[in-house]
């Protein structure tokens, strides 16, 4: 554990909680892609199956359970409790175009051809692109609520911090995991355009809106 890793995990946790609270407090999931949230629930489910097979630390177990629990709670709020506010007409990204190629890639490029390892690899690849339906929704509506942009910022910063964590671990522990690193770089790059808008607009007190 180093400072980048811890900060990354906390940023990830903050993102998840910001989104849950936003939906809960406003009683609305307008502007949120349910498809991205289903993908994140799938990511956590396939990645954390090792909860059943190995114990790493109390921290590790606690965070995994919280991430999974919050992911399903978010999906529940969007598709059940506040279904009437769900922006289905704009949330039209075809997720099969992500899940199918990612599933194929996980079979082809992995560390070990075993069920748990393939599912872990699948989750890493899927996480790197799971935000695309959300970014697509924002590009379609042309705007995002400020609280939604805070969510996206924390979520993007999380993987960027993990990149620093991996650099740290490579230098000080000789550890590297090529699958996680490449997927993490892809994931972070997908947020760059958003980071630019966040810094130039949201942090200056303006609403995030895209030119028509």
């Amino acid at each position: 554990m180093n400072i980048f890793r811890l900060a990354g995990d906390l940023s990830h946790l903050a993102a998840i909680i910001i989104l849950l609270l936003k939906i809960w407090k406003t009683r609305s999931c307008a502007g949120i892609s349910g498809k991205s949230q289903i993908l994140f629930a799938l990511v956590f489910t396939t990645r954390y199956l090792d909860l059943l097979t190995s114990f790493i630390s109390l921290y590790n177990t606690f965070m995994k359970v919280v991430y999974i629990g919050c992911a399903y709670a978010t999906v529940y709020l969007i598709y059940m409790k506040f279904k009437a506010t769900y922006d289905g007409n704009h949330d039209t990204f075809r997720v099969e175009f992500l899940v199918v190629p990612v599933g194929g890639l996980a079979f082809l490029v992995n560390h070990d051809f075993s069920p748990l390892e393939i599912l872990w690899t699948f989750s890493i690849y899927l996480e790197s692109v799971a935000i695309l339906p959300q970014l697509f929704l924002i590009s379609k509506t042309g705007e995002a609520e400020t609280i939604t942009t805070h969510y996206l910022f924390c979520l993007g910063v999380y993987r960027a911090l993990y990149l620093f964590n991996w650099i740290w671990r490579f230098y000080f522990e000789g550890f590297f995991d090529m699958i996680a690193i490449v997927a993490g770089v892809v994931q972070t790059i997908l947020y760059c355009d958003f980071f630019y808008l966040y810094v130039t607009k949201v942090l200056k007190g303006k609403k995030l809106s895209l030119p028509a």
Binding site: R5, H12, N60, M63, H111, W120, Y162, D177, A180
Partner: peptide, 10 residues
């Protein structure tokens, strides 16, 4: 190529 590692990262 690196081998599978125990997954301590989230």
């Amino acid at each position: 190529e690196d081998d599978a590692q125990p997954k301590d990262e989230l």
